[in-house]
Amino acid sequence: MSLDSGLYTIRNGEDLVGRALYETLDLSPKAVFNKTDDPDALWVVEVLPNGRYKLYAKGAPTAVENNMPAGPVVALLIQQQDAEEWELAAVDQAAGTYQVRSSLGSVWLVPEPGKHGPIETLPVPGDDTGSPTVFTFEKVDL
Score class of each variant (00 low, 15 high):
14 E>S: 13
16 L>W: 06
16 L>V: 06
17 V>P: 00
18 G>F: 06
18 G>T: 07
19 R>C: 15
19 R>L: 12
20 A>N: 14
21 L>H: 00
21 L>S: 04
22 Y>F: 14
22 Y>T: 04
22 Y>R: 07
22 Y>E: 09
22 Y>A: 10
24 T>D: 01
25 L>F: 02
26 D>Q: 00
26 D>G: 03
27 L>P: 07
30 K>G: 11
31 A>Q: 12
31 A>C: 13
32 V>F: 07
32 V>Q: 11
33 F>L: 05
33 F>M: 03
34 N>K: 02
34 N>D: 02
34 N>G: 02
35 K>M: 08
35 K>I: 02
35 K>S: 05
37 D>Q: 00
37 D>V: 01
38 D>R: 08
38 D>E: 14
40 D>Q: 04
41 A>G: 04
42 L>G: 01
44 V>L: 08
45 V>A: 07
46 E>M: 10
46 E>Y: 05
47 V>D: 12
47 V>I: 11
47 V>F: 09
48 L>C: 02
49 P>R: 01
50 N>G: 00
51 G>C: 05
51 G>E: 06
51 G>T: 09
51 G>I: 08
51 G>Q: 07
51 G>Y: 10
52 R>D: 03
52 R>A: 09
53 Y>C: 08
53 Y>P: 05
54 K>H: 15
54 K>M: 12
55 L>V: 11
55 L>G: 11
56 Y>H: 13
56 Y>V: 04
56 Y>R: 10
56 Y>G: 01
57 A>G: 15
57 A>I: 06
58 K>M: 11
58 K>P: 06
58 K>R: 15
59 G>D: 08
59 G>P: 07
60 A>E: 13
60 A>W: 11
60 A>T: 10
60 A>L: 11
60 A>M: 12
61 P>Q: 10
61 P>K: 04
62 T>M: 04
62 T>E: 06
63 A>N: 13
63 A>F: 01
64 V>S: 11
64 V>L: 12
65 E>Q: 14
66 N>L: 00
67 N>G: 01
69 P>M: 01
69 P>H: 00
69 P>L: 02
70 A>F: 06
70 A>E: 15
70 A>T: 13
71 G>D: 14
71 G>K: 12
71 G>R: 10
72 P>G: 14
72 P>T: 13
72 P>M: 14
73 V>I: 15
74 V>N: 09
74 V>H: 07
74 V>K: 03
74 V>D: 13
75 A>L: 10
76 L>V: 08
76 L>N: 04
76 L>C: 04
76 L>Q: 02
76 L>W: 03
77 L>M: 13
78 I>L: 11
78 I>W: 03
78 I>N: 09
78 I>C: 05
79 Q>C: 15
79 Q>P: 07
79 Q>S: 12
79 Q>F: 11
80 Q>L: 02
81 Q>K: 00
81 Q>I: 08
81 Q>P: 01
82 D>Q: 13
82 D>I: 08
84 E>M: 14
84 E>Q: 11
84 E>Y: 09
84 E>R: 01
84 E>K: 05
85 E>T: 12
85 E>M: 08
86 W>I: 03
87 E>Q: 12
87 E>I: 07
88 L>P: 10
88 L>D: 03
88 L>V: 05
89 A>W: 05
89 A>V: 07
90 A>W: 00
90 A>D: 04
91 V>M: 06
91 V>D: 15
91 V>I: 15
91 V>P: 02
91 V>T: 11
92 D>M: 12
93 Q>D: 15
93 Q>G: 13
94 A>S: 13
95 A>T: 08
